[in-house]
Write a protein that binds this DNA or RNA. Structure first.
Lengths: 235, 235
DNA sequence: CATTGATTAATTTGATCATATTCTGGGCTT
DNA sequence: AAGCCCAGAATATGATCAAATTAATCAATG
């Protein structure tokens, strides 16, 4: 629960350490980002500047900057009248996210397959193992974190920074909803295709890896879609 | 030349007016965004907070927020040591941008074709006419603005806000380089496929419109690519 | 003696905060 | 129910502190 730890407390690391030298706005940003990504903030929940200054023990300027950044990334929503909140996905938004991921994830996976070393693949397998353990123990938070890390690791391996950044940003948009959906279903019924992805990558078969990732993505995103009414353009 | 107009000057509109009620950080953001998009800032050029506070006649807080936003969008680059600058594209980056636009633009064009009204198409044609006039008169700035507006209008017509936002964001990344390239070539040798796009859209042929946009995109982006050495990963 | 190198002083710029101002929204009065 | 008022939250400024780049000084060496 280091969520509630103050910025001031985090800043005093040993002099030579790296995290101690990070500016406050960067720390706030990372914390807020993680909160959105893993569903600590519910969809629709308002996000106030003063609330965060108190909660994080920081001044308003760094908080404001972090919020602006997250708004620009689509992780938060500016409601026109100086109000900020966690976006509520509509069925149409989910459709867009599926379309986007269905293209980005396979492409990046194919690139990653061509560049991945044996070490890289071992690290991916480790992440997947931790993910399986989280499913068994029913630890939703760890599940969400490791699932994200698995896909993020593939993005990074692809060595396509701009596209990886785009794919990464999409997670911020469905993070809050994903948490709600998974929370309702329990971790038991959360199948994935990660094993098939790993197999294909080990075999150097980019096409098959891309196919497997695509199925994994669609499978996961459809869960999110089903949590809404119908996929039609109704309101 | 309202670039150099101060924020204070822009803020005093009539009480009921819309632009007068926009917060300063929003105005700064829009101005800076336009500067990046249309190449007023050269690639590699440093962007300082204090320089902007002077230039725009505003305080530091709004300027800082605008800069953070643009960094999050990839329009500016944080250089680690608290310095901010306009990014320099590499050949690999250009390749990524081509891949991304080659997928996003055709898809959105297809969606737009299915939804566009006759009025919408007329507006597009108007934009294209102004673009042609800019080419004749050799007005590079107007050319860049109208060319962007043409594509942006198509994105908006598609009614896919997330994907449109992604496509829109890519322009910020190649804006500065595009200006350099077009500046070297002069406006005369800047062919586009907008007429074919419009024809296909009027005919309701989404597939053909998508194809035409794709050619337009590739044609334009290849100009940018050629301004570098070879596309290889050298250096 | 001149040139180069490094160490340190000075200036510029970024980060943070406390404070003043403006605006929105809800409650209360009429 | 409409309009006014007030509490609270967001916006914006300037001051202050810290970091980094640049300039300058000095010493050592060829």
């Amino acid at each position: 629960m280091n969520q509630r730890m103050t910025i001031a407390a985090q800043k005093m690391g040993k002099p030579g350490e790296e995290p101690g030298r990070l500016p406050a706005h960067e720390l706030i940003y990372r914390q807020l980002r993680a909160m959105v990504l893993f569903g600590d903030l519910a969809p629709g929940q308002p996000v106030t500047i003063q609330g965060l200054t108190d909660r994080m023990g920081a001044g308003m300027t760094p908080v404001r900057e972090a919020i602006r950044r997250l708004i620009a990334e689509g992780a938060l929503e500016f409601q026109g009248n100086r109000r900020v909140s966690v976006p509520q996905l509509t069925a149409n938004h989910v459709s867009e996210l599926i379309v986007a991921r269905q293209w980005l994830d396979p492409y990046l996976t194919q690139c990653a397959t061509e560049r991945a070393s044996a070490d890289d693949l071992d690290r991916l397998a480790d992440l997947d193992a931790e993910l399986d353990r989280a499913i068994e123990t029913g630890d939703l938070r760890i599940y969400l974190e490791r699932n994200y890390s698995f896909h993020k690791a593939i993005y990074d391996l692809a060595d396509q920074p701009i596209l990886a950044n785009m794919a990464d940003g999409l997670w911020l948009r469905f993070g809050p909803s994903l948490r709600v959906v998974c929370g309702r279903m329990g971790t038991q019924n959360l199948p994935d295709k990660h094993k098939e992805v790993l197999d294909a990558m080990r075999a150097g078969d980019g096409e098959r890896a891309a196919q497997a990732i695509c199925e994994d993505v669609v499978q996961g995103m459809e869960q999110v879609r089903l949590s809404f009414g119908k996929p039609g353009p109704a309101t």
